[in-house]
Simulated assay, not measured.
Amino acid sequence: MTAEGFQQLRLDGVTRRFGGKDALTGLSLTIGRGEFIALLGPSGCGKSTALNCLAGLLPLSEGSIWQDDRRLDTLPPERRGFGMVFQSYALFPHLSVRKNISFGLQMRRVPRSEVRRRTDEAIRLVRLEEHARKLPGQLSGGQQQRVAIARAVVLEPSLVLMDEPLSNLDAKLRLEMRTEIRRLHQSLGLTTVYVTHDQEEALSMADRLVVLRDGRVQQVGTPEELHTRPANRHVADFMGYRNLLPMTVAEATGAVVTVEGAGFRLRGTPVGRVRVGDEVIAAIRPEDLVPGSDGVPATVDVVEYQGRELAVEARTESGVALHLRAAERPAPGDKITVTADPARVLVFSS
C-alpha cells in the first residue's frame, strides 16, 4: 500500500473570511511529498480552517492550492483524493471494523478482490486483526481511532489530513497513538498535514511545524528550530517559554543585552534588533532557571510533583511569578535565588 505520487503541494496566499473577518490570512506553504507537517496554535488561530480549506470543506476567499501543476481549490472534496481523520472518529456504528474500513473503496466501485486485499492490509497495518468483526461500540477509544486512520489510508490518498485526532484519548493512549501515526507515516510514505494545539505532540511527530496566531503564520521550521529559536514572543509562549517577563533594555553590547524590571536584572540574547530603553519581553524556559548566588531572589509559592522533577512557582520580592524545575523538593516559603545562562534568555521586542 503506497500513496499516489506527487512532488509538492503548494498553498499560495490561502485566505478564508467569515462575515468579513479573516479566520486565515495569506497562508503560503510548500509541502514536499512524504512530509509530516503540523499546524500548531491555540484555539481560534486558524489551523482547522486551513485544514478544511485543504480538504475542500471550506471555499477559499482568496489564494489557490496546487498539487504540482494541478489546481485543487476549484475541485470538490471527493475529487482531491485526500484522506481525512477527524477528532470524533466519525465511524458508522452499525458497521463492523472491516466494513467501516472498506466502505470508501466500495463507494468508489473498486473490484471486490481489490477491496478485500486493501482492507486486509489496512487492518494489519493498524494491528486490528483480532477486532475486524467487532462494531465500533465494542472498541476502546484508541482502537476506534485506529479504524478511522485505516479507513483514510486504505484509499491510498496522496495526502492525509488529521484534525486533532488524539484529543479525545487519555494520556497513555495519546502517547501510543503518536507512535502509531508516525510509524504509519514512515512505512507508507504518506504526506500528512496534522492539526494540534499540543506542542509536545507536534514536536515529537512533525518534520516541520507551522505556528499560527490570529489566522497568520508566526513561524515555519523544524521542531529543533522552533524549540530553540522561536521567532517571536507568541511562538516562544507556545513552545514552552513559560516565563515571559516584561523588561526594559538597560545595556546592549553586541550579542548580549542586559534587561531590567520589577527590581531585578537579567542578561539575555536578543531576537531581532533591540536598543537601550526599548520595552521588551525576556523569555525563559522553566528548566533553564537554575540556582545561582548572583541571581534573582524569590520565595517558593507552589510545588507540584511531576515524576523525576518538581515544578515550582516562586515569586520575586515585587510579586513577579517565576516558573522553574527542581530535582529536590523545596517547601512553600523557602527563599531561593535563580539565574539563567544568557544564551537561554531570549529577548523579544514587546
Rank of each mutant, 00 (worst) to 15 (best):
M205E: 09
L125N: 12
V195N: 01
L169S: 08
A202Q: 03
S204M: 04
A132V: 13
Q199N: 02
G142W: 13
I181Q: 02
D198N: 01
L139G: 00
L203E: 08
R183M: 06
G142Q: 01
P165N: 02
T191S: 00
A148K: 15
E176N: 14
L125G: 09
G142F: 02
T191M: 02
A171D: 06
K172F: 13
Q145Y: 12
S204K: 02
P136W: 14
G142D: 06
L161W: 02
T191K: 03
A202D: 00
H131L: 15
T119M: 00
R178P: 08
E129I: 04
T119I: 05
R183P: 06
L203I: 06
L203M: 09
V160H: 07
G142A: 13
L173S: 14
Q143L: 13
R127Q: 15
Y194A: 03
L139D: 09
L161N: 09
V193L: 02
M205A: 08
S167C: 11
H131A: 15
K172S: 13
V153A: 00
A148P: 13
M162V: 09
R146D: 14
L175A: 14
T192R: 01
A206C: 07
L139A: 03
E129Q: 08
V195P: 04
L135F: 12
S204G: 07
R151Q: 08
P136N: 12
L169D: 09
R146F: 15
T191H: 01
V126P: 07
D120Y: 01
A171C: 08
L166W: 11
R178Y: 05
M162N: 05
A206Q: 05
I149E: 05
M177F: 04
K134D: 12
R133S: 15
L169W: 05
A132Y: 14
A132N: 12
A202N: 00
S167W: 02
R178E: 11
R146L: 13
L155R: 12
G137S: 14
E180C: 04
G141R: 00
R178I: 03
V160Q: 10
V153I: 06
T179W: 10
E130Q: 03
R124N: 11
V160R: 05
S140R: 10
E130T: 07
T196V: 06
D170E: 06
G189P: 05
V153G: 01
V154R: 03
L190C: 07
